[in-house]
């Protein structure tokens, strides 16, 4: 943790920026879960002393500028290709900590092949996957994870699964791959879930450090702007509408991963 801050004698330090993060404002919309998840990633990087070992892989989507918020080396991938870039990085830098941070359009549509094969190879990388059921950055189009009947700018009458297919369940799919060591779906929309989410991110990162295989933490998130809701309403909607279709839980956890002290 940051040791440079001067704390007055009569006060106790209770909260500060993680060393792994930069002291800046983010570009995210008010109430967006990205900020929370960034913070958790930063805290875990600090706690595991990974800052100087880390190379992050940024996606295309709302978190395309994630490298502005982390005090670590970063590369900016093409849409969906973060797991391939991470593979190239990890194979040539096995002593480094490589993580990708991807949204649902990036990971579950255009980059489906890359994530499945990275998982199946047991690539020693960790992925944080933000699922908010919509394309945020491009203005609210239908995502591969958009719920049935959900209205978006490209499904104005609501997602018709007969035309557009069904919301894809990535954690369930990734868990099928032999190379995956730890696959879990968490939520970032209430305090209890957020605490659990942090532990999951830590377990995922430790999975890589211990060389146990591929790890991915899916986070059910929100998009107040493109869902046309206020932040509070969007948190509730995520919990009430997304969770039934995308059940929370650990979809794969190898015994060695279970044994990790988190």
């Amino acid at each position: 943790m940051n040791t440079t801050t001067q704390i007055p004698e009569n006060m106790e330090l209770v909260y500060q920026y993680p060393d792994s993060m930069t002291k800046t404002y983010t570009h995210y919309c008010p109430g967006c879960v990205h900020g929370i998840v960034h913070r958790l990633v930063g805290e875990v990087l600090d706690e595991l002393d990974l800052r100087e070992k880390s190379i992050g892989v940024a996606p295309v989507g709302c978190s395309v500028l994630i490298y502005n918020y982390f005090n670590v080396d970063f590369v900016e991938a093409a849409h969906g290709r973060a797991p391939a870039m991470a593979t190239g990085l990890k194979r040539t830098n096995p002593d480094k900590f490589i993580f990708t941070y991807q949204g649902d359009g990036d990971l579950a549509a255009i980059g489906t092949a890359e994530i499945i094969h990275a998982a199946n190879r047991g690539e020693l990388i960790s992925t944080v996957f933000i699922n908010n059921a919509i394309y945020g950055m491009t203005g609210g189009q239908m995502a591969p994870t958009t719920l049935p009947g959900m209205k978006t700018t490209s499904s104005p009458g609501g997602r018709d699964c007969k035309i557009a297919g069904y919301p894809i369940k990535m954690s369930e799919i990734l868990a099928q791959t032999e190379g995956a060591a730890y696959i879990t779906r968490e939520a970032g929309t209430d305090i209890r879930s957020i605490r659990k989410l942090k532990k999951a991110i830590k377990r995922a990162f430790l999975t890589q450090i211990e060389g146990l295989g591929f790890s991915c933490v899916e986070v059910l998130a929100n998009c107040p702007t493109n869902w046309n809701m206020d932040p509070w309403e969007s948190m509730l909607w995520s919990k009430e509408q997304m969770t039934p279709y995308f059940p929370l839980g650990t979809y794969k956890m190898r015994e060695e991963v279970k044994a990790l002290k988190v």
């Binding site: 391939a84 593979t87 040539t92 092949a113």
Partner: peptide, 18 residues
């Protein structure tokens, strides 16, 4: 051996970045 040329060039991109 990558899953596609798309993946192959992006693996190259990642490795070359380092």
């Amino acid at each position: 051996q990558a899953e596609s040329e798309v993946a192959a060039i992006n693996m190259v991109y990642g490795a070359a970045s380092s």
